[in-house]
Design a protein around this nucleic acid. Structure first.
Lengths: 237, 237
DNA sequence: TTCGAATTATGATTTTTATCATGTTTTTCT
DNA sequence: AGAAAAACATGATAAAAATCATAATTCGAA
């Protein structure tokens, strides 16, 4: 099910270039590298569950992970999608509390696990690295404030249009003037990102398609009219 | 309009006891104390605006401050209310970005301003303090995830009931089996916390009153039936 | 203390969104 | 390949919430 390998050094990791580890000195990188553990995960597998105790952090080498919270009505609110170079679980570790969300693989992934102690030791020894991690958390906090504001003050149509633009930014591949979102998401998952009912997403995507804003290529969405979606996504602009 | 005073040392500050500064060693506390600046603020005054550059952090000695974001439709989403012992603005400082929200005094306040350099220097010299600050930000992040999930998956009635319980926790004063929320908020501000229209809050408060869940004492709200509100605030429980 | 403005209140209406129902298509598993 | 399950689609309906309108009340400044 999952394959293990301790021996792919962080020093040679391509996804490290754009991660929090990007300018960690070799000496500290080795501490991490010596203790880490690369695991392959298949779509649908759970990385960790909300409410459990974090034992370390995850570093995504490839693939996509959804970070979500299960509401009391059973629906999933997707907090964000994490991909190559992203770190997971450091907030719970630094907040000294159990995971406040769950993580599930949505595109086959290779993920390194760095045990708590190795991570915290590096943090303590290297203030620059600590600052970088804290900077990332602070930035996330600002993003969450914006998401909350959008959730309460914007319509579903506006939010879906905005989500499509964001997905295009993160997962878009160019092709003849248009951009294809190269990520398979179910309508239910898109609903989980937007924070609405699955049927509403299906209906609105049909509408967007009819209005020539998007096009469907199997399960993938092609953005035809970025400007149009941008106009839809906000009250002004 | 605002009175200044450099000479109330942090060492003697009562609100410090329950703040991030609570177990900062005297040596570092003095660095902070020597550079800080106590200012009195009146209701309605702005502490800082979203989009501006943070020059330091704020430490609330007394009073209440609302932290909010202005949505594109002009409405305010209140992120949280800060009171005695709370710190403001450190996330923007540590995230090395402009303020992602604005802060306005809603109950006359005395607030210390600690310049950026004094704060950052203390952070760098004292890893324990740094960890404590990071822990606070991480915790806030988890709370924001919960708020986002509530905003998208719960009804306005549920959210208002929950907000009233939270306000009672933070600002409640006991009195004959019931609890009075000792904080003056306009209906519009309550709507800003819940993330809804002002009229909806007014209507629901009337409903809660009719159902003997709350009672009004001038502008202040008295919680009569905590259990009833708790039942209303969630799908189960 | 009184006048004007802001806030609170309530009703009517419209819009938005969720839910329910049902059929079709696509995946998945054997 | 074929059956079962899951996902997608669309219509009908109901529920939730926003908006608009209009009073009544409270508050604040002259």
């Amino acid at each position: 099910m999952s394959s293990h390998s301790h021996n792919t050094p962080c020093e040679l990791c391509a996804s490290r270039k754009h991660s929090l580890f990007s300018d960690l000195p070799e000496q500290h990188l080795c501490t991490i590298s010596d203790h880490k553990n690369l695991i392959s995960h298949r779509k649908g597998q759970i990385l960790y569950y909300e409410g459990t105790n974090p034992l370390g952090i995850f570093c995504i080498n490839s693939g996509v992970v959804k970070i979500y919270k299960t509401a009391s009505n059973g629906k999933e609110q997707i907090i964000h999608l994490a991909k190559k170079g992203d770190f997971l679980g450091y907030a719970a570790l630094l907040g000294e509390e159990n995971y406040t969300n769950s993580a599930m693989i949505i595109e086959d992934a290779k993920i390194c696990f760095v045990p708590k102690n190795a991570f915290l030791a590096t943090l303590t020894k290297n203030t620059e690295f600590f600052k970088k991690v804290t900077k990332a958390i602070s930035h996330e906090l600002g993003e969450m404030e914006a998401k909350l504001t959008d959730a309460t003050q914007k319509s579903i149509r506006e939010r879906l249009a905005f989500v499509l633009l964001q997905l295009a930014d993160s997962y878009g591949i160019e092709g003849g003037g248009s951009q294809k979102i190269d990520l398979i998401l179910s309508r239910e998952e898109i609903a989980g990102i937007v924070g609405t009912a699955t049927e509403s997403v299906i209906r609105l995507l049909s509408e967007f398609k009819k209005d020539k804003l998007i096009e469907l290529d199997g399960k993938k969405i092609i953005i035809l009219d970025k400007r149009g979606l941008a106009r839809l996504s906000d009250f002004y602009a």
